[in-house]
């Protein structure tokens, strides 16, 4: 059979993405352990000793934390879940998301300028849900230390890099956003 692999553009690894601009950096992180939890969130937090789930642009702290996505759904970061253990138990449905969502950190004094380009939401108004449309993508946005953390579908990492590189915040971004060969 003919090898068609060279026909396709090599996939961009999120952790290889690094865009640096004036007073802003966008950096892909190595895969973070993540679990999606749906159902009785309070019971799950109590059973796993998790703090209150943070909302939009709220501060999350290591080693493991929860980010609220919906009334009955949250994303737990820092906890690994084997696919064998996934499913419905004790009022909650759990799904491993480590390979599904790529995480990025946006740092620097102009980090919020990138957010302003990506969405029209009010950054000074708290929201219980950290889920948003970021540059047209479903994403999760919160603060982690000095950085903003953004989780998006792993398959959209290259799009995020290309979109960010096209903004005026990253004058030299086009090269960095190119796929790795």
């Amino acid at each position: 059979m003919r090898d068609r692999a060279p026909f396709w553009t090599p996939a961009t690894r999120p952790e290889d993405i690094l865009l640096e601009g004036d007073w802003i950096t966008l950096r892909g992180l190595p895969p973070l352990p993540q679990v999606m939890v749906s159902g009785d969130l309070d019971a799950y937090r109590a059973a796993h000793d998790l703090p209150e789930a943070v909302g939009l642009l709220a501060e999350a702290e290591d080693p493991h934390y929860a980010v609220r996505l919906a009334r009955r759904r949250m994303l737990v970061v820092g906890t690994e879940l084997s696919p064998r253990d996934a499913g419905w138990s004790a009022g909650c449905a759990t799904s491993p998301m480590t390979g599904a969502l790529a995480a990025f950190e946006i740092t620097g004094p102009r980090a919020m300028d990138l957010v302003a380009r990506a969405t029209a939401l009010d950054p000074y108004r708290p929201s219980p849900s950290a889920a948003l449309l970021f540059a047209g993508m479903q994403g999760v946005l919160y603060r982690h230390g000095e950085a903003l953390r953004l989780h998006i579908d792993r398959g959209l990492a290259a799009y995020l890099a290309n979109w960010a590189a096209a903004t005026s915040l990253f004058p030299d971004g086009a090269d960095a956003a190119a796929p790795q060969t």
Partner: peptide
């Protein structure tokens, strides 16, 4: 851009 208010999330852009 219109701002609509979700009962759970609060005010958000209409594109959401």
């Amino acid at each position: 851009m219109h701002i609509y208010t979700c009962p759970f999330c609060g005010p958000r852009p209409e594109t959401e």
